[in-house]
């Protein structure tokens, strides 16, 4: 069974159709990349998986999305549970205006997962997982807004680890970072892959080629092609994919 299974998904912003009959099956514990030119619907598709599109007014969705086999569109899901399981990392790192500690503890607190020393343990383990612990263990009380961009993005990932999310949706997580920081976040993703199902939206085709096992290519709201990354990049089946990839690489 796939971790995420999308069938016949259509999404409309008012009259504008942003997703057209998308079908996609994402495997667990792998990194899946979504590529495509600006405005083709990558973020929209990603935000369907944790139903963040519900925050936008006048959005209508048809079709089915299953997370771990459970339908999240036909019946009204438990949003709290869904979003705990399917975490999201945003394009601009968005730690809360709280201390480093409180940022990581936020999720466990709202989900009543732990308190006291147990919570300290979760915070420590989560920060260790994103390799921030050594840098920040003496600065847990400092505001998270004082961290570097890369550290902030790591902190945002630690927030999800702390609630034991199973799926990480990353919407251009490196676009605000410099090349060095980007590589480090990519390394982190490789480390996390064994425990998490990761879907990453990226503008950067090299990044998609470097980090992902599977890739989906989107164009004007359609998922044109979906398959193993090396196949998409070396022998795409669809002409449009080939044009996009050679256009970008060549």
């Amino acid at each position: 069974m796939s971790a995420i299974e999308i069938r016949g998904l259509n999404l409309y912003y008012g009259k504008f159709q942003a997703l057209i009959n998308v079908n996609m099956a994402v495997e667990a514990k792998r990194i899946t990349a979504l590529i495509g030119s600006s405005g083709c619907g990558k973020s929209t598709l990603l935000r369907c998986i944790n139903r963040m599109n519900d925050l936008i007014e006048d959005v209508r969705t048809e079709g089915s999305v299953k997370v771990d086999g459970a339908e999240i569109y036909k019946v009204r899901p438990d949003f709290v549970k869904l979003r705990k399981k399917v975490g999201m990392v945003f394009q601009r790192p968005n730690p809360f205006p709280l201390s480093v500690y409180e940022n990581v503890a936020f999720g466990p607190r709202i989900h009543h997962m732990a308190r006291g020393s147990e919570l300290d343990g979760i915070v420590e383990a989560s920060l260790k997982d994103v390799l921030l612990w050594d840098d920040l263990k003496d600065k847990l009380k400092r505001s998270a807004l004082g961290l570097s961009l890369e550290q902030r993005q790591r902190l945002c990932i630690a927030r999800l680890i702390a609630v034991r999310s199973e799926v990480l949706l990353m919407d251009e997580p490196c676009s605000a970072l410099d090349p060095m920081a980007t590589l480090k976040i990519e390394e982190l993703m490789q480390r996390l892959k064994k425990d998490y199902t990761i879907i990453i939206v990226t503008h950067n085709m090299q990044q998609a080629a470097r980090v992902s096992e599977d890739t989906g290519f989107m164009l004007l709201g359609e998922l044109v092609e979906f398959g193993r990354t090396e196949e998409i990049f070396t022998k795409p089946r669809d002409k449009r994919t080939e044009d996009y990839i050679t256009g970008r690489f060549g």
């Binding site: 925050l55 979003r83 975490g87 999201m88 945003f90 601009r92 999720g107 709202i110 927030r159 609630v163």
Partner: peptide, 15 residues
């Protein structure tokens, strides 16, 4: 207050 804070919290499952 920046929208991103709110989105971040809701994406974590906060009510």
């Amino acid at each position: 207050v920046p929208r991103q804070y709110k989105e971040g919290a809701i994406a974590l499952g906060a009510t």
